[in-house]
Design a protein around this nucleic acid. Structure first.
Lengths: 110, 110
DNA sequence: TGGCTATTTGGCTATATTCCCATAGACGAT
DNA sequence: ATCGTCTATGGGAATATAGCCAAATAGCCA
């Protein structure tokens, strides 16, 4: 693989990897509706605040979210709402999987 | 986080995680143009055949690709072409990052 | 200033991922 | 049947990730 193409795929993979975690997906989805501060997200997810803070730093590092300090909280926002379209596509894959799974079950019963 | 919602995000994360690797992204992109067998992908990427085989099994396990044996090769195809739309969105994130980076550089020069 | 709250960082362990090598299995061709 | 090709699997080392706790930092408010 040529090195330029390789770099391109590494850069893309870095973004996708940042999304590839249940809590981070939850955060992305939540931020697509609302800006939220760390404490709110921590309460919603139910993990240690430091864990959520690290997840947010992964997302920020990938350029997926932006943060803004206000009062004594830091509010995070989704930088590119288009990532939510992707979730729809992932759901398509999941339902295709479920459909296939059902067909296999059916053919076994026969 | 409620357990049903949690399961949903875990299922989604599994799919996304399967995409979150440079070689696997390359494979997805390649398969969106062409069906390909393991040997072809191995040559293009330049890694051990067993490595590529494992990448393909990750993609297959996530339901992203399908395989079909023909002659003495196994041909892989992309099951949900919509995943390529996502790559476009990832590029949006990357160019937003680049733009921001440039603005920071500019403001430093002033 | 000193306490309070919100967030981040460092340290650590447990777990997961990636990659290569060696080997095994499948299958067509001779 | 045996060879050669193609693909998959097992093993193991190097590296990366996730999570918690403890401690540091930053800013508000009295």
């Amino acid at each position: 693989m040529k090195s330029m193409v390789k770099h391109q795929h590494e850069a893309r993979a870095k973004i996708i990897k940042a999304m590839a975690h249940p809590s981070r997906l939850f955060i992305i989805e939540e931020l697509s509706k609302h800006e939220r501060c760390v404490g709110e997200l921590t309460d919603m997810i139910g993990a240690d605040a430091s864990t959520i803070s690290k997840h947010l730093s992964v997302l920020k590092n990938a350029g997926l979210v932006a943060d803004e300090k206000r009062a004594n909280s830091i509010y995070y926002t989704l930088r590119c709402p288009c990532v939510m379209d992707f979730v729809g596509c992932v759901e398509d894959v999941l339902s295709a999987n479920a459909k296939q799974h059902n067909e296999i079950l059916k053919s076994c019963k026969k």
